[in-house]
Design a protein around this nucleic acid. Structure first.
Lengths: 205, 205
DNA sequence: TTTGATCGGTAATTGGGATTTTCACAAGAT
DNA sequence: ATCTTGTGAAAATCCCAATTACCGATCAAA
């Protein structure tokens, strides 16, 4: 089972195949669309045999779930790191930072919002659940910043749960529009809009 | 071809079958899920033969598109009518009305937001286009009210396009969460949140 | 009451893909 | 040098559901 091949250990070769599959899937799912993407097509593009595919994933949907998780994780990691850097800044600065980094991260590649906000919707109960978990995480993040603002006296002291969920929805909707819009919307405008919206939503009376 | 059956003219019989198919589809698509819904299942529930199905629709997806359009139209009709009633009210009152009626309409039946914001996403290019058209209509609606507010001097004079799109996203996101949330979220809270968010977004400096 | 069109239901037909298996080969191991 | 074992490519299988074709039942008009 475990044997070095071509000077490369088996684990690494598996990992590389997996990676190639994920890369090809991001491309295929966002161009052809998830539903119409065929597994054989995916394997061809990744330069991997169908057998290898089933060694790594149980189904096409599992690939989609993995990508969905990855993209969200990537964004969350970036945002967390950025907030660390402005740990002692005032609440409004932190909120602006949060959105700027979030928008900047997911707009690096239009395929990311496309996959997360279009292709990965309504696919299965599992994926819907995964979506809810991420909405929850993002909302919690926003809530935390809102509370911080409230403690600093620049925002009212109230329950921010629904506001946070609505803001996640606003970001989702705007990015979904962004990736589909013709002619392209300027990324800066999207970021600026979300920043302003969030500040207004939190500081409102 | 044209013959009265059971005292009922053929057109009416067709229309009734069509209606039964749409009713059954709303139920099936939002419980089983659009992807996993089988045409035969749909026909059985509607009490219609597969032959009749193909007389009315070209595909399962066409049924989905029809429902998607209907739900949006229904909401738009209600909202338009309600705004007529407060034609001369101040901008803020109209905006509150707009959201209240919108939320009230689509939450009458949780299957409506489920269909529109979950099942009908990422299905096909045609449906994505239809989605964009509706986002555009709703955004235009919101923009109009924002301008009205600006003219009345209660909001700044600026471009509200992206704000409007973001607000449509916020509504979508919140309603998607609403229809999936366990335990259920109070409808009034959702309406109140959207109202406050929109007012804050429009009156912000 | 006979006739012929239309109906609902059901039984083929068909086609597309997912999943499995086979096979010949290449690269370590001994 | 020979034997094992992992490997990719392709072929074979299998499954499922969309679409079509058929059949007896029903109804309206002559």
């Amino acid at each position: 089972m475990a044997r070095t091949y071509g000077g490369v250990p088996p684990e690494q070769r598996r990992a590389e195949r997996r990676e190639r599959l994920l890369t090809a899937a991001l491309e295929l799912f966002t161009s052809t669309g998830f539903r119409q993407a065929k597994i054989t097509q995916l394997c061809t593009r990744a330069g991997v045999s169908t057998r290898n595919f089933y060694e790594e994933f149980g189904s096409k949907e599992e690939v989609l779930r993995t990508l969905h998780d990855r993209i969200n994780s990537l964004a969350l990691t970036h945002v967390s790191a950025a907030l660390e850097e402005v740990r002692d800044a005032d609440a409004m600065t932190r909120i602006a930072k949060l959105l700027d980094v979030f928008v900047a991260t997911v707009t690096i590649d239009p395929r990311m919002p496309r996959l997360n906000y279009v292709e990965a919707v309504g696919v299965s109960p599992e994926l819907e659940e995964q979506h809810q978990v991420w909405v929850d995480r993002w909302a919690t993040f926003i809530e935390l910043e809102a509370r911080r603002a409230a403690e600093a006296g620049v925002a009212p002291n109230r329950d921010y749960r629904l506001t946070a969920i609505a803001l996640v929805g606003a970001a989702t909707g705007l990015l979904r529009e962004w990736q589909a819009h013709e002619p392209p919307l300027p990324v800066e405008d999207v970021g600026a809009e979300l920043r302003a919206l969030m500040l207004a939503a939190i500081t409102r009376a």
